[in-house]
Design a protein around this nucleic acid. Sequence first.
DNA 1: CTGAAAGCGCTTACAG
DNA 2: CTGAAAGCGCTTACAG
Lengths: 353, 353
Amino acid sequence: MQRDEQGGPVTIVDIARQAGVSIKTVSRVINREEGVGPQTRARVQELVEALGYRPNVSARSLSSRRSYLIGVIFMQVGAYHYVGEVQVGAMRACRRAGYHLVVEQVGAPDKMGGVQGLAGALRAARFDGLVLTPPTCDDPEVLAAVEAAGLPYVRIAPHREFERSPYVFMDDRRAAREQALRLWNMGHRRIAFIDGPADHGSAARRRQGYVEALQDRGVEPMPEWIAKGDFLSLSGFDATEALLRLAEPPTAIFAANDGMALGVLAAAAKNGLSVPRDLSVVGFDDIPEAEAAWPRLTTIHQPTAEMAEAAVEMLIDGFGDERFRTSVQVRQLDYRLVARDSAAAPSNPIVRT
Amino acid sequence: MQRDEQGGPVTIVDIARQAGVSIKTVSRVINREEGVGPQTRARVQELVEALGYRPNVSARSLSSRRSYLIGVIFMQVGAYHYVGEVQVGAMRACRRAGYHLVVEQVGAPDKMGGVQGLAGALRAARFDGLVLTPPTCDDPEVLAAVEAAGLPYVRIAPHREFERSPYVFMDDRRAAREQALRLWNMGHRRIAFIDGPADHGSAARRRQGYVEALQDRGVEPMPEWIAKGDFLSLSGFDATEALLRLAEPPTAIFAANDGMALGVLAAAAKNGLSVPRDLSVVGFDDIPEAEAAWPRLTTIHQPTAEMAEAAVEMLIDGFGDERFRTSVQVRQLDYRLVARDSAAAPSNPIVRT
DNA sequence: CTGAAAGCGCTTACAG
DNA sequence: CTGAAAGCGCTTACAG
C-alpha cells in the first residue's frame, strides 16, 4: 500500500495538502463532480495517481451511507457452473463502478440459521444492493428479508411477481420450445423431459416450453415422460434408467440442464445405447463439459455472465434514482441453440417386446 | 431493518440512551469485552436484541481499522467446482466470526487490468485478510501485490516458498502416488498421466506422485505418457485421443482432475473402447459428476470446502496475534481414495498392429 | 466497573 | 469555482 510520510495509507488530507487545496476539492475530483477548474482538477488527479491514493471505503460509506458493496445470494447446490458465471459477470460490472462483490450463502434452514442468518448478515453488511438468482429470487422468505432490510435488488430469471423488482432474463420457455421442436422435426415422437428442482423458475419455464412444443404438434405429453430431476448429473442418470424401463421408451431425452444431460449420456452408455443412433439427448446451459462429452452435447447457450453483468449495471444505475424502486426495469438477453452431435433422426427406435 | 424513533437504523446511541449507560458500555457488551457488571450487561443485551441492533460495519471499521471483510481471489477458469467449494467453506468460517467474504477476480492481463486491477481493488476494499488458491497462490505478481498492500493471507495448496505464509494443504503427491500404485497393482504397466496447467502447484504435485509410483516399481515413465492438459474436460478428451494413437497406447489413464477424466471417458467412447475393460480411467477431486459418469469414476476425494474453512479460521485467529505474520502455521487435511468402477485389471490390452 | 473525549477519513449541507 | 464546518457511528486511549 502507498503510504504518506507518517507511514499511514495516503488519505484525502495528504492529497489536499500537497495540492494546496481543501479536502472538499479533492473529494470532488475523486468523485468526478463538477465545479473544479481544469488546472486544479489535473493537479489533484496527478497527485492521486502518483501517490496511489484510494478512497477509504469505510469512511466513504459511513458518511455517504453507501457501502459500495453489492451482495449476491448463493445457495449451496453442488453444481457451481451457474454461480461461477454469475460471479464473473457481476464482478466485471462491480469493478468498473468501484463496487465490491460479497457472496452470502443461504443454506438449509438448519445450518447457520438459513434465512435467519441471511437477515442478520444483510443488516450487518449494509449492502447497497443485491442480485438474486434462482431459486432464491423466488423464495418468499428471502424476498421478505431483503425488503425488510430496505435493500434494492435485481433478480435474474425470476419466476413470479415480475412487477416486484427490476430483473434480467432470457426466454427459457421459447428456447426450450425451440429445442423440443427441433427434436420433433427430426422425427422424434416420444420425447421425454427431465425436470429441474421444483422451486426453480427456469426449470419450470423450460418444462413449459417442452410441453408447448408437443402441444403445438397436437400431442399431449404423457405424464411418465416428464421425470423428476434436481439439476445434478446423478438425477439425470437415474431418471434415464427409469425412462428406459418404460414399455415404450423415449427416442429422445431433453434434460433441463447440461449437468443432467451428462447423466443421461452416462446412463445410455450403461444400457448399451449409442447416442444419437439409439437415443437423442439434448441439454440446456452450454457448460464447458458439454463440448467435451461424447457425442458432443446439443444444448442451448445461456449468457449467464452477461445476465449478471446487466443485473449489476441496472442496480448501480438505479442507486442515483429514486424511481428505481417503483418503476420496474427489465432487460432481456438472447440465447443460442448450439447444435452439436447428440441429437439426430431416430434411426433405430427402441421398442420393448 | 429495525429503526429508532427518528426513523434511522438503530445505533449504539439509541441503545445507550434507553439503557441509561454510555456508548462505551454498549460497545463493550457488543464486543464481548470484560469490565461490565452482569446486570448492566444483561440489560444492554436485551435492548440489543429487542431493537434488532447490528453494529454498522463501516463505522466500526473506520475507527478500528478493520474491515471485517475477507477476500478470496479467484481466476476465471471455466470450471467452477473448486472455487464454489472454496467459497462455501470460507463463507461458513466467515459467518461464524461476523466477517463477510468478498470475491475478487484476477483475470488475463488484458481484461480489467489483471494484477493492476487487483492491486487497486485490494487498496480500496481494505480487506482484513486474503485467502489465496492455486494457481494465484504461487503467482509472484499477485503475492507481491498482496504483500505490498500489507495484507495477511493464508494460502491453500501452495507450491513454492512454504515459509512465506501460513497455509492449508492435503498431500496431493501421496494421494496421486497411491492412485497410480493402485493401477500398477491391478496389473497396468503402461499408465499415462494427463497433467494440469503448467503454473498449477496441485497439478505438479499430482504429476510427481504419479512419476514416483512408477519409479518405485522400477519404471521410468515415457515422456509421451505425460500429456498436457488444462483441467478442462476438452483437454482430457484431446489428450486421450493423442495417447490412443501411440504405437503402444496406455492401458490406464490417470487424469490430474475429474473434469479431464470425464473427457477421457468421452474420448474412450468415441474410440469404441469399453471402460474399464479396454482402458482404465481415474481422476482426482471427486466432483459430483464423477459419480454420475459411466462407469462411475474412481478418484481421490479432496476436502476443498474444509480446506478453505480452515484457511479462514487461521486467518481470523491470526488477526489478534502479531506473531501471525512471522510464524508459519500449517494445517493438513486428509484425502480419501474413492474406488468406483472406472479402473480394473487390464483384460484386453490394446496393441496397434 | 464505567465514561468523556478524540478521532478514524470521508461526504453532506451550506456559504461565498 | 472553492472551502470551513459538522457529522456519519463506531473504537481507541485514557482517566477515574
